[in-house]
Design a protein around this nucleic acid. Structure first.
Length: 106
DNA sequence: CTTCTTACA
DNA sequence: TGTAAGCA
């Protein structure tokens, strides 16, 4: 699930299909190889907050799918769900801080 | 048929 | 973490 046709046309495009909420539970679960219960567990843990559609159905974006994938990796390695969520959150914060720092230096 | 919530294993 | 029941 890497970028295939991202193209160097819009390198600074913030509004991409990465944040577009287009995946439902069955879809996300199938592409990630997990169960719907697992995705909901991540939601309950506070790792991901998928948008809700109409009647309250979850809508996952590719970014959230990536978070779910990282969570699955850590959990698959034996990391407790809550711990995995904390680790991922911290890694995300570090990535954000690094991004800001990179803008300052670069 | 698909998703949601709650509960059990 | 996976699965079951009952509902929208």
């Amino acid at each position: 699930m890497e970028r295939q046709a991202q193209g160097p046309a819009e390198p600074d495009d913030k509004f991409d299909d990465d944040d577009y909420p287009a995946y439902s539970m069955g879809r996300a679960a199938e592409m990630l190889g997990v169960t719907q219960a697992f995705l909901r567990s991540l939601d309950a843990a506070g790792l991901i907050a998928p948008q809700r559609s109409g009647g309250g159905h979850r809508r996952y974006s590719r970014v959230q799918l990536r978070l779910a994938t990282r969570a699955r990796e850590l959990i698959d390695q034996g990391t407790p769900l809550e711990s995995a969520c904390r680790i991922i959150t911290l890694e995300d914060q570090l990535a954000e801080a690094r991004r800001v720092n990179d803008e300052h230096t670069g």
